[in-house]
Amino acid sequence: MTKKQNLLKGIFQENPVFVLILGMCPVLGVTTSLLNALGMGAAFTVVLILSNILISLIRKLIPNDIRIPAYIVVIATLVTIVDMVMNAFTFSLYEELGIFIPLIVVNCVVLGRAEAYASKNGVVDSAIDALGMGLGYTIAIAIVASIREILGSGELLGFNIIPFNLFEPATIFILAPGAFITLGFLLALINVIVAKRNKKTVENK
């Protein structure tokens, strides 16, 4: 696998949210606005890259029996650092994201990449893998958040974007049920796209 393929797989074929359906809690919880989603995505990507690099570095020093607890400690340390830095320097974003920042510790994507990739591969590859996965995750939650913010409050990044008040925003989309429903329809859309693509490749053969 080339480096480019390694990077792109996290965004498309193995997108953690849309394809693997992992780490769903923040996908639903912080997507009330695009700004929150981007903030969450950035925090998540930083933790993922650092954890993949660190774990790839120490992978040969950790005995196999305690590798999972050791990874968890490493990830928890990184998350706490990100948590403190955000609390200190991006205060209002930090308050919006709330509990979902410390909960990156138990995000299956981070531990999953540590176990499935970083523990078996070199530092550079692990970093690229993490960057791809982080971008894939950020793009996914940004899409969910954009849909919810536009439909739910008629705004994007806080700007009113509905021309001539064409429709009244449907508040339900920024409430809890809207999160589930938006995600359900998006996943169905992805299914349609994947099915079409598969059909095409079969026909080409």
Binding site: A176, P177, G178, F180, I181, L183, G184, F185, A188
Partner: peptide, 23 residues
Amino acid sequence: IPEAFKGTPIAFITTGIMAIAFM
């Protein structure tokens, strides 16, 4: 169920409807 909605998509939508009820 329509093919595209089978599995996880319909699961999320059902949950959404349940969430409306719980509100």
